[in-house]
Write a protein that binds this DNA or RNA. Structure first.
Lengths: 253, 253
DNA sequence: CGGCGCCCTTGATGTGCATCAAGGGTCTTG
DNA sequence: CAAGACCCTTGATGCACATCAAGGGCGCCG
């Protein structure tokens, strides 16, 4: 049961640009860059979006080493962000869903250091960074929102550090599932039943675990009745129980 | 009109504010907020710094839950940043040295989520965030630099995630030492001989290891001649060797 | 439709780091 | 100077997760 992205279903089978790119009527407005802005300012943000870009499953939106030009707002679909170290390690550092901003890593040096790969056929709005900077000098609300987004990214990564640095495998997986659940709900999807877009290996990479461990932990959650899982189809049966596993000693969330 | 202050050492033995706080003649200029800015803009940044604040060893600069008002630039000394989870876990998420900016976590929700504690008697420049936002709407160079700093923070945390997610204990400790070495050198200190300001436990917390493991790994590095370590005094004897341990398979960096 | 490739699951075994434990060095303070 | 509080080191043991290995489900494509 796929929920359509837009209530006003713009079925433009042709090249999707201009008209379809309307922050004003995008239902991600509340999650994305224009969050909490006046209708007037939303219009101006809208003008920043120069293009919409489709990225097929498995293709990359940006690659490490490429020059940084634009930020991207995920319009539909989802992505994984990966970092490859000199010595050949390759780690997933996050998953991006609709309304989230990609490319912030490029600002510091004007070169991307992160690879971003689509987990399914996806679509993004491109926002040239120089124009965003200009506009946020004029629109205080945009500036504020952009700063919030960057800060949120920082805070989120701190959370990931805690997860990687001090949680046990079950806590990590539970935390991951709870987080996914919240994010789906925030987007109007079911919080208790969803489809994993990533493989066990990608989850493991993100959580600092091996794919077998992810699989085993999920099977255990299944056995104990916390969730039901069949391949990539997840049903959360006991949300509170899962949250307990995610942060123990906190009696009931 | 404060052009002449430069080399005229204003030795105000009294309360150190105003005059002493001069980005213009601060030797951290190249590492801090005014990086790469015109002398004129540096003056304007300087005007943002409302106060200098001393923090004694063990005291906190900011605490989770406090309202967010200001960013802080470390002027001297050093800090650890910690995050405490609901369930009582407490993890060190970073160490801040002179010239680095603290408080970015507060921007997203206007409440700090991170505790920042001085590792030694330290001093910071306080920068009210609302004024920074105002100013960066007017000064493009400041805006750019501030964005760079936030992005750098994001990139740095991605690095920490790789460390925590996929490195073995020896790699983590070696990476940590190499990173410290670089940061000391950037500040004009010796890159090969320095004093650890944090305990083994704090290092361990940051690296996702137990203090005993940190101690053991360092002892091993000592035995193999990579470093010399005596309590908190570190000498790096074989910088290349240490880098090899930090990222193996990269022949000689 | 049948074969192949990818992904997932599950069991057996191994190991890196945690945990438990003891003791020593160094700084602080009365 | 002596007592106590930290912090660090080092050894012995245990365990959580990695690794190795085998097989099954499902979708893709010739």
């Amino acid at each position: 049961m796929q929920v359509t992205i837009d209530s006003t279903r713009l079925s433009d089978s042709s090249c999707a640009t201009k008209d379809a790119v309307r922050c004003t009527n995008c239902n991600l407005r509340e999650l994305c860059l224009p969050q909490d802005m006046t209708p007037d300012d939303v219009q101006r943000v809208n003008a920043l979006v120069t293009a919409r870009r489709r990225v097929k499953k498995g293709e990359s939106l940006q690659r490490a080493g490429e020059p940084f030009k634009s930020l991207y707002a995920v319009r539909s679909g989802s992505f994984k962000t990966c970092i490859a170290t000199e010595d050949g390690r390759n780690q997933v550092t996050g998953f991006k869903m609709s309304g989230e901003i990609i490319g912030l890593d490029g600002i510091s040096t004007n070169v991307h250091i992160i690879d971003v790969i689509a987990l399914e056929d996806s679509e993004v709005c491109a926002i040239p960074f120089s124009r965003l900077e200009e506009a946020s000098r004029e629109i205080a609300g945009l500036q504020k929102q952009f700063h919030r987004i960057m800060s949120r990214e920082i805070v989120g990564e701190q959370g990931a550090m805690v997860l990687l640095g001090s949680m046990r495998a079950e806590e990590r997986v539970a935390t991951f599932l709870v987080s996914l659940s919240r994010r789906f709900r925030a987007r109007g999807y079911s919080a208790t039943e969803f489809h994993l877009r990533m493989t066990r290996e990608e989850i493991g990479s993100y959580l600092g675990l091996k794919l077998e461990t992810v699989s085993r932990v999920m099977s255990r959650f299944h056995e104990t009745g916390l969730i039901s899982i069949n391949q990539k189809h997840v049903v959360i049966l006991d949300a509170d129980g899962l949250k307990d596993v995610a942060s123990p000693s906190t009696a009931g969330n």
